[in-house]
């Protein structure tokens, strides 16, 4: 992209920050869901967002890749605006065909997996590299098999999603996101729809990713996972970030009464 669309310098964002949010606001009609969210996610770090339901954490995650439009504020991913173009101090919304180029760098893993049900596991992983990036099919297949091996599902490559368990589907979804070599992966409650005994497999794959230095933003209810993996634990409530910091600090001696109350209820 041209120099205009890189805004690290212009907004004084440290160059290693992948997700930079300042005063992000979003409302549905009169219901204000995000009331000014601030967050920085440095490259190679893991930010886990926790908070009560309705606190706006999933909405914020979906704003990062412009699945939801923001009403006000600044959201940069790798120094780029997603979904908007800055001209004359106004953010102009871009057409979908332009947005998708930037979206391709932002991976997303959904609560309900959302695998393409008409494609095999291998097809799910290779679809975007081949169709969006123009990777040759042979190369995409090799890389996909590599990624499927990484999530422990190389032998399922010819199965259809409906033939897999929830945990397996979610691991395929992670491989599908990885196939695009994203700069950051967003996880929207990735284990909430899983049977308890399948949660571990998915969390292990995510831990491996964190260890490999993948930048991740994870909305989760798994406090145990968050405290183990997160570099930054973010507590959101009523559309704002109440506090963010090292998991040990947030969990053991939070300065906020709301955080303490939430943690006491989920643990």
């Amino acid at each position: 992209m041209n120099a205009l669309s890189r805004h690290h310098d212009r907004f004084n964002v440290p160059s290693n920050v992948v997700v930079h949010a300042r005063g992000v606001q979003k409302s549905y009609g009169t219901l204000s869901v995000l009331k000014g969210v601030d967050l920085d996610v440095p490259s190679g770090s893991v930010a886990c967002i926790i908070g009560p339901s309705g606190s706006g954490k999933s909405t914020f995650l979906r704003c990062i890749n412009h699945l939801e439009k923001i009403d006000a504020g600044l959201l940069l991913v790798d120094g780029d605006l997603v979904g908007y173009e800055l001209r004359d101090d106004k953010l102009y919304e871009l057409p979908a065909s332009t947005i998708c180029r930037k979206r391709a760098d932002i991976g997303m893993v959904f609560q309900n997996f959302n695998l393409f049900s008409h494609l095999t596991v291998l097809g799910n992983v290779t679809e975007a590299p081949v169709q969006v990036r123009g990777t040759p099919v042979k190369e995409a297949n090799e890389r996909a098999i590599e990624l499927l091996a990484k999530v422990g599902l190389a032998d399922k490559r010819n199965s259809y999603p409906s033939q897999l368990s929830g945990g397996q589907q979610q691991r395929v979804a992670i491989a599908r996101a990885l196939a695009m070599n994203p700069k950051v992966i967003l996880f929207d409650e990735p284990t909430s729809a899983l049977d308890p005994e399948l949660v571990g497999d998915v969390l292990n794959v995510m831990k491996d990713l964190a260890r490999d230095g993948m930048t991740m933003v994870v909305v989760t209810h798994e406090i145990g996972f968050a405290s183990e993996v997160a570099d930054q634990l973010v507590f959101m409530d009523s559309g704002v970030v109440v506090e963010a910091g090292k998991p040990s600090e947030v969990i053991t001696n939070s300065s906020s009464a709301r955080t303490r109350e939430f943690l006491s209820r989920v643990r």
Binding site: L67, R101, N114
Partner: peptide
């Protein structure tokens, strides 16, 4: 969810319609 997953992978609306 299928639309959202495809959009998140960077698919253009036309490709999304015909491939997904």
């Amino acid at each position: 969810g299928q639309t959202e997953a495809a959009l998140c992978l960077g698919m253009k609306p036309s490709k999304l319609m015909w491939r997904i």
